[in-house]
């Protein structure tokens, strides 16, 4: 469970997060939606202690992220940012193995290696394991990064736009894998997504933000309404039911 209590954050006088309070329950996929600049990524960064909050606090399983020692928190919560350009050249296996760092401190045990193999298999990276990251396509590389985060073996996994740069096929593949992580491995997955329909089809809960404030949160079915989407995105959106799924169509 992630509890966010009246968190605020400003950049150079601009309030990016304005007194946001939110509880993300254990289990399932929660998607953060909102227009560009709504504060989704900032909220994710604050929740994962990559950014310090100006005020308010965040607790993961009751531990304050600002004061909990890094290694302790890294065994409970894993995070992946949008930009992951690295100045070092790694193979896929080396990258994924870094996910075990909070447990192994750099010396992989047999159990660590087993977990690495499992993560590689889960994200279908086995045949690519010994390739260097710069030899992979964007989609494969993205999978490798998510595999590293999964390999960390944490109950909470926070991902900032994991579908960035992925085409339709790879986006669907990624979302299925994340769905599997939530269902079969019982991880709590929190995503920043900019496609509402991805959020609608794959997540259990939606958190909607606008201009640094929380607009609404709740089960996906309750939030996928024309009224709410208009409020969040400032665009008329029709919502249609298609094969049991709610699909928003903004091109009316």
């Amino acid at each position: 469970m992630i509890e966010i209590e009246s968190v605020s954050k400003s950049y150079g006088g601009v309030r990016v997060l304005d007194d946001v309070s939110l509880t993300i329950p254990t289990g399932g996929i929660t998607s953060l939606i909102g227009a560009n600049g709504a504060g989704k990524s900032t909220l994710l960064s604050v929740a994962s202690r990559l950014l310090p909050a100006d005020s308010g606090r965040v607790r993961v399983d009751g531990m304050d992220v600002a004061t909990t020692p890094g290694p302790v928190l890294a065994r409970r919560l894993a995070v992946l940012r949008q930009e992951n350009a690295m100045s070092v050249r790694l193979t896929v296996r080396e990258l994924v193995a870094f996910g075990r760092f909070p447990h192994s401190g750099g010396r992989l045990t047999r159990e660590d290696s087993r977990q690495v193999d499992e993560a590689l298999a889960w994200f279908e990276l086995g045949p690519l394991a010994d390739r260097h990251l710069d030899q992979l396509s964007g989609g494969q590389r993205q999978r490798a990064y998510v595999a590293m985060v999964m390999c960390q073996g944490t109950d909470h996994v926070l991902l900032d736009e994991p579908l960035n740069n992925l085409d339709m096929r790879h986006a669907v593949q990624m979302m299925r894998m994340l769905r599997g992580m939530a269902d079969e491995l019982e991880r709590t997955v929190v995503l920043v997504v900019h496609d509402v329909n991805v959020a609608s089809c794959y997540s259990d809960r939606i958190v909607a933000m606008r201009e640094g404030q929380l607009v609404a949160e709740g089960p996906t079915s309750e939030l996928m309404t024309p009224e709410l989407l208009r409020k969040v995105f400032d665009v008329e959106v029709e919502v249609h039911e298609l094969a049991g799924r709610r699909i928003g169509v903004p091109w009316s």
Partner: peptide, 21 residues
């Protein structure tokens, strides 16, 4: 420090995410 430096080389955010101070 070496194992932690290996992680720091991945960039600040990744290093923090992996629990390195």
């Amino acid at each position: 420090l070496l194992p932690r430096l290996d992680v720091v080389a991945l960039g600040r955010d990744t290093a923090v995410g992996l629990g390195v101070e």
